[in-house]
Write a protein that binds this DNA or RNA. Structure first.
Lengths: 164, 164
DNA sequence: GCCTATAGTTCTAAAATTGAACTGTCAAAT
DNA sequence: ATTTGACAGTTCAATTTTAGAACTATAGGC
């Protein structure tokens, strides 16, 4: 399958995967959220090959996740900064961190703790329903076709089954 | 980089990426949450090659995300069911769906709508602070080293910078 | 016997990734 | 004036992964 095909699927998950659904892109984003901005810094902290790093950064810029901003002239140099679209990826990253904390931590506990500046406490990121505020679980959710889904779409078949 | 190396990093995100950080695995999980259970069903709805599907399912079983359960004898056939560890990936999937809904939807709107059975309303999944319940944003979060992080770890350098 | 269904495995070709070296611009040091 | 080093990449051969297609195995039904 080609990456482009994913972008065109009538599925928001597939479209997101088309943008950030690979190992290096996700790791690059981790660095971005830890304030890394420059090519050399990404390269040395991730041990990614320069070739791939260059490719991935271009892709993230193309999708509007990062902005390539000059930070000096002569020689002209650029750094990569998260756009709002990029910052909006934060819940995805945090959801993955949370799952790793719960299911992949070793005996010594989680590698990083997170403090919420607003309330001052160490916290866990929790996903809730926007309407009632309850913690979300897969079994509590029922899926409906939305306006953006063609009747012929692949996912249609699933819908019937998920109506069980 | 090898996948195994990621598992061993002192970073919950890296460890999660080691398990689900590739395109096909994420798509397979989408199908799982839409109640797909069988090899042929995964294969025909995803158009993944049988070879890769087989490989990825094995990996998900190895990591305890799916359970391979016999559903008939003679010939013996199996289906793949999400474990609790697998069900716990739901927030990650939903966070990705949400981002796609916001940033990758076309003019016609989102492909799927989600109803929360508990409250009966169409909702969006929102990530909040477990302590104060406020919606989370990257800028509101401050990172600290946790017990599971070796002093020498790669992430240490970032920590200093993120303390700015 | 032959066809179909299901769940895989095997094989070759094509694509992506790795590793290492190389390019170009400029500032600072010798 | 020349060399060295920092930074942001690009290029290219070798290795690894993925795609695509064909093949295997077990059993029920015609």
């Amino acid at each position: 399958m080609k990456w482009g095909a994913l972008e065109d699927e009538a599925c928001s998950l597939a479209r997101t995967i088309a943008v950030i659904g690979d190992r290096w892109t996700l790791l690059i984003l981790r660095e971005c959220f830890l304030r890394t901005r420059r090519f050399e810094a990404f390269q040395s902290s991730l041990q990614i090959t320069r070739h791939l790093l260059s490719e991935r950064l271009k892709k993230l810029v193309r999708f509007g996740i990062l902005r390539r901003v000059p930070y000096q002239d002569s020689p002209k140099r650029y750094e990569y900064i998260l756009t709002q679209k990029g910052l909006d990826l934060y819940p995805i990253i945090m959801a993955m961190v949370r799952w790793g904390d719960i299911h992949m931590a070793d005996e010594r506990g989680r590698p990083l703790l997170h403090e919420h500046k607003k309330c001052g406490k160490l916290f866990d990121p929790v996903m809730v329903c926007s309407e009632c505020g309850e913690v979300l679980a897969a079994k509590e959710v029922h899926v409906h076709p939305g306006p953006g889904r063609p009747v012929s779409a692949l996912a249609t078949a699933h819908q019937h089954r998920s109506d069980e």
